[in-house]
Design a protein around this nucleic acid. Structure first.
Length: 566
RNA sequence: GCGCCCGUAGCUCAGCUGGAUAGAGCAUCGGUUUUCUAAACCGAGGGUCGCAUGUUCGAAUCAUGCCGGGCGCACCA
């Protein structure tokens, strides 16, 4: 239960019942910045003062009285400058709260939504590299989060297995085949993909005896392309698996084109008057000498907020990548989701407006569609920027990263920053496995609690929830209050698609726990289980079980393990 | 030139979507292990929230304009 939301609703109702005619939308109940102000801060006096033309402090006094009469659970209610009603809950409230505390799994979504989330969608011409990891983890955690709170989520991957790059890919594999079977040196000057993984693919094809006659490339290029693509996708799926990611659905661009879905979709747009033949202006400030004026089939994306209209057909009459993507998104709409999320890398941010435009056009603005962009990851090694060269094919793969630092660290660090900010990822820092790495701090809390639970033997029947009122130390109440912030964290994270709040919350919770734990070093009364008062031990174990439950839930959303021991 | 993102402590970043005296980690300095896991805890110092103007009772948060950094701006995919 989110107590802030609960009391906001309750207080609003109370004020409405007492005929306050004001702007209820701006009301908020939040935790005050300083704990000395209390547990809840209600801003009604500030919001109401202008429309009621009264001093906020006077309004505050009225509201404080109303609340006092209706809600006995408050220990103190104070009006504070510049216009807050600060409320402190009685300890009995917190004991009751703890006694019925749940981790909110499957409970927070106000209505169960069918959500589609597309992420990764990396080109199937090679393994995942470090650059893909962030969007991959972000999308995956978002999917976990949204389904954790009760939604029905489909995780989707769009395979760009069509077009020019695929020809180059097939050619590259062909060159590797020639290299292996006929000792012809791999040419480095033809813009082919140089990476070693192509050798693996070629070896696999040979092993499966898939290509028998290499003499005429034209005859076998389609077969090579198809089979090599299949091999590459096996590779990518295995890379994703090493990151703990499993998509529900892989949609092939090639199949969409094959089904003639593009032409059908463009026709729908044409009926909506969003298509025309025209000439695009030359991009400014971009000295592209090859640019020339040409008449093309265009989509009126400017009608939907884009900067320029977008080409749908190339001059040779074939569809552009974007046209295929429009068809893909029409295919998404066909499957009728309540919400669509696209996770893109920073290098595709220029693509965002036209995607939104095509969704708006196809659905007549009736779609809940959101694109989230993950900014770049900068790699460091011992504090120095770490350069990778894509041309030489010596980029670091996702798999190598996971092997080097472990999947837990990769996932935690990739989600530990807002997706809008660039991320510094230092190999050595994460490999060191010291306290500098926050994932271990949180996991350590899990291990410590497990250790307690292992050592203590309690009969559940002996436990009476009334004994929770023995948890009346500051540290214990503080822990209970931290637990109460969990559903708020979930709500903010999911409503704003900001999963980075979860590791921050977990860190905070772990920190409160570690503080609590260490009290036992100074004062024997605070030793959790080495205590003669068994009722108190029961109560403390109950509290720690709840803390562990949240840590486990939180880490499971992140896709990070919660170890029993370390 | 245009679009998107960022600018908060020495460094890396949070900041509850407009509230009260701006918070963490690292780094620096000082303390805590006979005792449930010291991979931990406690304490100290450190800030003109890039700059300016505006909106507001109130701005790190919103608007506009600068300055600085990143990414992008094809008939590629």
């Amino acid at each position: 239960m989110n107590i802030f939301r609960f009391y906001k609703d309750e207080f609003s109702k109370l004020l409405k019942d007492n005929n306050y005619e004001c702007n209820y939308e701006k009301l908020s109940v939040d935790s005050p910045r300083q704990s000395s102000f209390g547990d809840l801060a209600f801003n009604a006096p500030l919001i109401f003062s202008s429309s009621l033309k009264k001093n906020p402090l006077d309004i505050g006094a009225e509201i404080a009285d109303l609340i006092k009469n209706k809600f006995p659970e408050f220990e103190s209610i104070e009006v504070a400058k510049p216009g807050f009603v600060n409320l402190r809950l009685k300890k009995t409230f917190w004991f009751n709260f703890l006694s019925s505390f749940q981790d909110d799994k499957g409970k927070l979504a106000t209505e169960i939504k069918k959500i589609n989330i597309e992420y990764v969608s990396a080109n199937p011409t090679g393994p995942l590299h470090v650059g893909h990891c962030r969007g991959a983890v972000y999308g995956d955690v978002l999917a976990n989060l949204l389904s954790f709170i009760g939604n029905n989520v489909t995780k989707e991957y769009y395979i760009n297995d069509y077009g020019n790059q695929i020809h180059m890919f097939a050619k590259s594999v062909y060159a590797r085949l020639l290299e292996i079977k006929e000792n012809i040196k791999f040419p480095l000057d033809q813009g082919l993909y140089p990476g070693d993984y192509l050798k693996d693919i070629a070896h696999n094809l040979i092993q499966k005896n898939a290509i028998k006659d290499l003499s005429d490339y034209e005859l076998i290029k389609d077969d090579i392309g198809t089979m090599a693509m299949r091999e590459a996708m096996v590779m990518i799926k295995s890379d994703l698996l090493s990151l703990g990611i499993k998509h529900d659905l892989f949609v092939s661009e090639k199949e969409l084109v094959g089904k003639d879905l593009v032409a059908k979709t463009i026709k729908i747009l044409d009926e909506k008057d969003c298509i025309y033949e025209g000439i695009l202006p030359k991009p400014k400030g971009n000295d592209n000498e090859e640019w020339e004026e040409r008449n093309q089939l265009l989509f009126k994306s400017t009608k939907f907020g884009d900067d320029v209209d977008r080409a749908l057909k190339k001059s040779d009459g074939t569809w552009t990548y974007f046209a295929n993507d429009v068809a893909y998104h029409a295919y998404k709409l066909e499957r009728k989701f309540d919400k669509y999320i696209n996770v893109l890398g920073a290098d595709h941010s220029g693509y965002l407006k036209r995607l939104k435009a095509c969704m708006d056009a196809l659905s007549d603005f009736k779609t809940d569609f959101e694109c989230k962009v993950c900014q770049l990851v900068k790699l460091f090694k011992s504090g120095e920027p770490y350069k990778m060269s894509k041309r030489a094919g010596d980029f670091i793969t996702a798999k190598e990263l996971v092997e080097a630092v472990g999947v837990d660290a990769v996932r935690f660090m990739m989600i530990y920053r807002s997706n809008d900010s660039q991320l510094d990822f230092d190999f050595d820092l994460v490999t060191e496995k010291t306290k500098e790495n926050p994932v271990f701090y949180v996991q350590y809390a899990s291990a410590r609690i497990h250790s307690i639970l292992r050592k203590v033997e309690l009969k559940k029947d002996d436990f009476d929830k009334k004994n929770l009122n023995l948890l009346d130390s500051e540290a214990e109440i503080d822990l209970i209050k931290k637990l109460s912030l969990w559903s708020k964290c979930l709500e903010l994270s999911s409503n704003n698609l900001e999963p980075h709040r979860i590791p921050y919350y977990l860190y905070d919770l772990a920190s409160s726990f570690h503080s609590y734990w260490n009290l036992g070093k100074e004062n024997n009364d605070f030793r959790i289980i080495e205590n003669e008062n068994m009722a108190l031990v029961h109560a403390r174990v109950f509290l720690l079980e709840k803390v562990l439950m949240v840590i486990k839930s939180g880490l499971s959303i992140l896709g990070v393990s919660a170890p029993d021991s370390m």
